[in-house]
């Protein structure tokens, strides 16, 4: 631990996470992909699993996330991170495996892969960054784009009559028996960021306990393609996205009621 020389009593309480590399990220200023990276890295540090974690990057703005995490990493074809993570986890059941996917990647081209990974109850964790747009390719409409939202491929605003309504992946996947933990959080303010971090921790704990598929959806900003300043982009999440993508817990692992009951039956519990 480094202590400021001039102030020997000042001790760092927050430092750059060890599970992030020092490679400069290419994310736009104020993009909350960076916040999500930070939180995941902090949790990996706190759980002491840096040497035991394997990430799977997707295609989208986070395509280079394998450069930014100081853990082992693979990089999958567009939408196929859950398929690759299936193989990685099955071959390395003692490792903690996660995918990091955008909404275009997960909800559009990769809709089949994510659904069937959940159906099979694959025991890895998905971090799903929903910014309601295809960020990397220039801000086209995604399945998650809000009704009326202007994008480069819906210049007059998304028209649900011809292009459908925003797809809520967490609610959809929570219906699947194989899904153990599915929640939605947001990155738009300090309180929400703290909640998001707790969910990231819980998801990785669910995986460590072998309980099955886990996913944390994170509402995230794209200041560049939304055409908003970074602070205004956070307000857009709060005011426009959260009403359409409500925050909450859609699937939680069954309480260990059976275990508790069994323990009570043996008189092991007071």
């Amino acid at each position: 631990m480094t202590v400021l020389a001039a102030e020997p009593l000042l001790t760092p309480v927050y430092e750059y996470p060890k599970s992030l590399t020092h490679v400069p990220t290419h994310y736009c200023p104020g993009c909350t992909h960076g916040v999500a990276h930070r939180l995941i890295a902090e949790v990996i540090d706190e759980m002491g699993i840096r040497q035991d974690t394997i990430g799977v990057a997707s295609v989208g703005c986070s395509v280079f996330s394998y450069r930014y995490f100081a853990t082992d990493f693979a990089q999958a074809a567009h939408g196929r991170a859950p398929a690759m993570a299936t193989g990685v986890k099955r071959a390395n059941p003692d490792k903690i495996v996660f995918t990091y996917q955008g909404d275009g990647d997960l909800a559009s081209i990769g809709a089949a892969e994510i659904l069937h990974a959940a159906v099979r109850g694959e025991n890895f964790t998905v971090f799903f960054l929903n910014n309601a747009i295809y960020g990397m390719t220039g801000g086209q409409m995604a399945p998650t784009t809000l009704a009326g939202q202007k994008t480069s491929s819906s210049p007059d605003g998304r028209d649900p009559a011809t292009t459908g309504a925003p797809l809520r992946m967490s609610e959809l996947l929570a219906q699947v028996d194989g899904a153990a933990y599915v929640v939605r959080r947001s990155l738009h303010d300090v309180v929400q960021i703290r909640r998001a971090k707790k969910a990231i921790r819980r998801a990785l704990e669910v995986q460590r306990q072998g309980l099955g598929f886990s996913m944390v959806e994170l509402l995230s900003s794209c200041p560049t393609n939304w055409g908003l300043e970074p602070t205004a982009a956070l307000a857009f999440i709060r005011d426009e996205m959260v009403p359409v993508f409500p925050l909450g817990d859609f699937k939680l692992p069954a309480e260990p009621a059976a275990a508790a009951g069994a323990a009570a039956g043996t008189g092991a519990r007071a």
Binding site: L9, T11, Y14, C31, G34, V35, V190, I193
Partner: peptide, 20 residues
């Protein structure tokens, strides 16, 4: 730590005075 929690770049290091 509020500023550090908001920062997307993990650019902020926070120090606190601790009793010696």
């Amino acid at each position: 730590e509020m500023c550090a929690i908001a920062c997307p770049e993990a650019a902020i290091t926070v120090y606190r005075a601790v009793k010696a």
